[in-house]
Simulated scan of single mutants.
Amino acid sequence: MNVTMEQPIGARLVTSDDRERAIPATLRYTAADPLAVHIGFPAHVTLDGEEVTWTFARALLEEGLGAPAGIGSVHIWPCGPRRTFVEFHAPQGVALIWFDTLLLRRFLRRSYTVVEPGTETVDPVLDQGLTSVFGVN
């Protein structure tokens, strides 16, 4: 069954002059893409005026709630008991956004009711492609 869950969430964008701006976001998790979580931002808060969705590993979100995590375009780390920072790297620049940790944890727990951690499976075609790229059997 292809179950998708979404959760609107408020966030705070940290600007280059260390001010904060409230922005809306939407967290999404779908059984069709069980290893990933998605954070969407509406067009009016993006640089190019188009909706943007960032997709990254659900395990990265889980790890980043407890300790600094991430390489590449998404980095996540806790900042005290109530805030979690997510840093997005794109060709246009870097966005630093913080979320309420409790709400991120709640979303993560809800995602486990859709697909339990460790039971994720990927499409056989994708699995075959990954096997051929990495040369593992």
Rank of each mutant, 00 (worst) to 15 (best):
V3C: 04
V3I: 15
T4Q: 12
T4M: 08
M5F: 14
Q7C: 11
P8K: 12
P8R: 12
G10I: 00
R12A: 07
L13C: 11
L13E: 01
T15K: 12
D17W: 01
D18L: 15
R21M: 15
R21S: 03
A22G: 05
P24M: 04
P24L: 07
P24H: 11
A25P: 03
T26A: 11
L27P: 00
Y29K: 00
T30I: 10
T30P: 04
A31L: 06
A32C: 09
P34D: 06
A36F: 06
H38K: 14
I39M: 13
P42G: 06
H44M: 06
L47Y: 04
G49A: 08
E50P: 00
V52S: 03
V52G: 00
T55K: 14
A57L: 11
E62C: 03
E63P: 02
E63Y: 04
L65P: 02
G66Q: 09
A69L: 06
G72K: 12
G72A: 12
S73Q: 14
H75K: 12
H75F: 11
H75M: 08
I76M: 05
I76G: 01
P78V: 09
P81C: 01
R82E: 15
F85H: 06
F85E: 07
V86K: 01
V86L: 15
E87S: 12
E87I: 04
P91F: 14
P91E: 14
P91A: 13
G93D: 11
V94P: 04
I97G: 02
W98A: 03
T101P: 03
T101W: 05
F107D: 00
F107M: 05
F107K: 01
R110A: 14
E116V: 05
E116S: 14
P117M: 09
G118Q: 11
G118D: 11
T121H: 12
T121N: 10
V122N: 07
V122Y: 04
G129M: 13
T131H: 11
S132V: 13
S132F: 08
F134Y: 15
G135F: 12
